[in-house]
């Protein structure tokens, strides 16, 4: 049963991927995306939301919203800037709201697929290409794509832990 506890981890991921319940977005190959049927009759508005968690960066979306037809490839641009004086590795974690729509939202290209390393003061523009599945029910007219950038632990993390235990001291 100890092993079962660990087995729950991949099981949970598979379960969430199949049902789309934890709001994580999926990926799709460019070829598959181009073959998708476009539904010209309706428009889906995708709103963008950017967050940072314990990372001294600036992170903004160039467009606030993008409107696409389901099945049509959409594109958005995001900008990150490292405002600190050291190199930092960051990882963006995407999520979709409402979560029930997340299985219909797929990306062909995203800066969240890889870690982003920014030198001190460096700025980077990044593209996201996404496609909303034409099978998505019509009750979803707007989706929010939210990204949170996390700092990945590196050599500085030891310092961070020390800072943290300093902070919670009573």
């Amino acid at each position: 049963m100890f092993g079962f506890g660990y087995a729950l981890v991949p099981l949970y991921d598979v379960f969430c991927e199949v049902t789309g319940i934890n709001g994580k977005t999926g990926t799709i190959s460019k070829e598959d995306a181009e073959q998708m049927l476009v539904d010209d009759n309706r428009v889906v508005t995708v709103l963008f939301d950017t967050n940072m968690r314990e990372i001294p960066w600036e992170f903004t979306a160039v467009e606030r919203t993008v409107s696409v037809h389901p099945g049509q490839l959409g594109e958005a641009t995001f900008v990150i800037k490292n405002t600190s004086d050291r190199e930092i590795v960051g990882q963006a974690v995407p999520s979709i709201a409402p979560t029930q729509a997340s299985i219909y939202f797929n990306k062909t290209e995203c800066f969240c697929f890889t870690q982003q390393t920014l030198a001190a003061g460096e700025t980077r523009e990044m593209k996201v290409r996404f496609i909303v599945d034409s099978k998505m029910p019509a009750r979803f007219s707007a989706l929010t794509l939210s990204y949170t950038f996390f700092a990945l632990p590196d050599a500085n993390s030891v310092v961070k832990v020390a800072e943290q235990s300093e902070r919670i001291k009573i």
């Binding site: 049963m1 100890f2 092993g3 079962f4 506890g5 660990y6 729950l8 981890v9």
Partner: peptide, 14 residues
């Protein structure tokens, strides 16, 4: 106990 305690042990080990 035998079925469930090891699951907790796994969770806290994680």
């Amino acid at each position: 106990l035998i079925a469930s305690m090891p699951v907790l042990a796994g969770a806290v080990t994680m």
